Computed example of a mutant assay.
Amino acid sequence: MRKIYVIGIGAGDPDHLTVQAVRALHEVDVFFLLDKGEEKAGLMELRHEILRRHAAGHDHRLVEVRDPEREAAPDGAAYPGTVGDWRSRRADLYERLIGEELGEGPDDDRTGAFLVWGDPSLYDSTLGILEEVLERGTVRFGHEVIPGISSVSALAARHRTGLNRVGGPVQITTGRRLAEGWPEGVDDVVVMLDAHQAFRHHLAADPVIHWGAYVGTEDEILVSGRLSEVAARIEELRSAARARKGWIMDTYLLRRDRDRTDQD
């Protein structure tokens, strides 16, 4: 039977790969690389660099295809439907790639892989799309997930901090959710997928923010401090970086003051 590896490749540094991931690279016959266009060519080049560095000497093929365009996601009830439509178009593509590029005979290329930015378990669609393909029943395959270093863990490491404090939880959420309000029951919040700097909604609480863009790459930018003191700088840096590169990946940790009776 065909086998698919879903390999987490880290937050941007080719050395983020685990030993387990490197071993998996050497089991793969065909790597499926999704091209996101000229603006995000750096994401494709990183994948090529990873294969040059960690899969040298191993015989494999590369199949590069254009990733389906995702429409701007509207707010409100229409959001899940827009995302669902995009994921189904991706499922069509994955189904075709697996069926056409991976055979089932003993002499065929039977092992494929998707190289997933960060960790496949955290705000990534690959696992859900593969499940949709399997549910269709048109192609058969087994799959294995190799965890990777997420932008969240890389961010905490670069700021030399933990994600939670003693006895307290941490919540990982999106900018869309943070704009609706601070999550109940937590003082430490990691925010991903924030295109509109939702931290501006919480200036009055003045939490500490640990912010990072392109973490783990040569373009890495880090800012840390009280939100009231650094919010304007983050917005300026973010805007300039996005204009320069055409895209941006940023993540941040907000740390609200705990009750004075709490002890870290």
Rank of each mutant, 00 (worst) to 15 (best):
M1N: 11
I4S: 01
V6S: 02
G8C: 09
A11N: 05
H16L: 08
H16T: 06
H16I: 09
R23L: 15
R23T: 13
R23I: 12
A24F: 09
D35Q: 14
K36V: 05
A41K: 15
L46A: 10
E49I: 14
R53S: 07
H58C: 11
D59Q: 14
H60W: 06
R61Q: 13
R66W: 04
E69P: 05
E69D: 11
D75P: 12
A77F: 11
G81P: 02
T82W: 11
T82N: 11
W86K: 04
W86G: 08
D92T: 07
I98F: 06
I98W: 02
I98E: 03
G99T: 09
E101V: 04
G105L: 09
G105W: 06
R110Q: 06
A113R: 02
A113C: 07
W117L: 04
Y123I: 04
Y123T: 04
D124R: 13
L127Y: 05
L127A: 08
G128F: 08
L130P: 01
L130A: 03
L130F: 03
E132D: 15
R136S: 03
G137P: 06
V139N: 02
F141E: 03
F141R: 02
H143V: 12
V145H: 01
G148M: 01
S150K: 00
S150W: 00
S151L: 03
V152N: 08
V152R: 07
S153K: 01
A154M: 07
A154D: 05
A156M: 14
A156F: 10
A157K: 05
T161I: 02
N164D: 14
R165F: 07
G175F: 07
G175T: 11
R176K: 14
L178E: 12
A179Y: 08
V190D: 04
V191Y: 02
D194Y: 03
Q197Y: 10
F199T: 00
L203K: 01
H210Y: 11
H210I: 03
T217C: 09
I221G: 01
G225P: 00
R226E: 00
E229N: 00
V230Y: 00
E236P: 05
S239V: 08
R244Y: 09
G246R: 06
D250I: 03
T251Y: 02
L253Q: 02
D262K: 10
D262A: 13
